[in-house]
């Protein structure tokens, strides 16, 4: 493992660019299309200490029946649960195109041995997860032990096998600055990440537009060098449609339209789906909506 050298990031410049992206005005058909696209990119998530079989089952039902009163809606992309609920979710979703993602590797802190992390991962994979969301070792990262971080990701990637896609959570809220976000992105991509993901959702700040832009630029540079596409998943803190559309504009203008697909872009969120639904209905009917008419599971 050689030393990692990542391009530098200028925070002020990043914020200027973000500011410009958020000024895009998405109207009419493009808005409706964007909202549906965003809905189709949601990883409906429950990662609570108090999760139960019933809670997961209810969420899986919701994932398949977002708002039955309104036909023609896309489904969400995936549900995201702890490893011990993967079987429940796989079962509940077996007749749908919705994927099951599982967090693993001693989520959310990542403080455990590699053996435990691999076991954790295998547990999810064996239970039928299509995707694994791992966390990197932020402590080792801050100590400058980038080789450790890289090796761990590579080992988990191996444990996932060839058919399970690996999302690598950088937990950017703990990385301190954008240069570190870029460096961690480059390490994760080099180690074999299929997706890079901002946050566990347990730390504030979770996903932000500036952090996402830096990660998208890392993905772009990797594409320039290798032609290989890597996916992106901002997670946590994206709760309204306007913000979701801003993320999509950022993806479109940074990586291009090929990434505007749930194979390459996801939102990790729990309350976003209902807001998107409300906006889709508003856009279609012209009436502002009330949360009372949208099921919460």
């Amino acid at each position: 493992m050689g030393a990692f050298i990542s391009p530098k990031v200028d925070k002020v410049g990043i914020e200027d660019r973000v500011n410009r992206i958020t000024k895009r005005s998405i109207k009419k058909e493009a808005k409706l299309e964007g909202l549906k696209m965003a809905l189709n990119m949601v990883d409906l998530t429950t990662l609570e200490g108090m999760d139960t079989v019933n809670k997961v089952t209810q969420m899986c039902y919701k994932a398949q029946h977002l708002h039955d009163e309104f036909p023609g809606l896309p489904t969400v992309a995936a549900v995201c649960v702890y490893p011990n609920f993967v079987k429940i979710a796989v079962n509940a979703l077996k007749d749908s195109p919705i994927k099951v993602a599982s967090v693993a590797t001693a989520f959310p802190s990542g403080h455990s041995s590699l053996d435990v992390k691999i076991t954790d991962t295998k547990m999810a994979v064996d239970a039928g997860a299509h995707e694994v969301d791992m966390v990197i070792s932020r402590g080792k990262f801050h100590m400058g032990d980038f080789g450790f971080v890289y090796d761990e990701i590579a080992a988990i990637k191996q444990a996932c096998g060839t058919s399970v896609r690996l999302k690598v959570i950088l937990e950017t809220g703990e990385l301190g600055n954008l240069d570190n976000v870029r460096l961690a992105s480059d390490i994760a991509i080099a180690a074999g990440a299929d997706f890079i993901k901002t946050s566990t959702g347990k730390i504030k700040p979770a996903a932000t537009l500036p952090v996402t832009l830096v990660m998208l630029e890392a993905i772009k540079d990797h594409y320039y060098k290798t032609g290989i596409m890597v996916g992106m998943k901002p997670a946590g803190g994206i709760s309204n449609s306007k913000l979701a559309l801003q993320y999509l504009v950022m993806v479109k203008e940074t990586l291009g339209v090929k990434w505007l697909d749930n194979h390459w872009f996801r939102f990790g969120a729990s309350s976003l789906a209902n807001d998107l639904l409300m906006q889709i209905l508003k856009q279609s009917t012209g009436a502002y909506q009330s949360a009372n008419y949208f099921s919460k599971d």
Partner: peptide, 12 residues
């Protein structure tokens, strides 16, 4: 990379 052809914005 391609930047148009999908999700092109309506006039605003």
């Amino acid at each position: 990379l391609k930047f148009s052809g999908k999700w092109d914005f309506d006039p605003a």
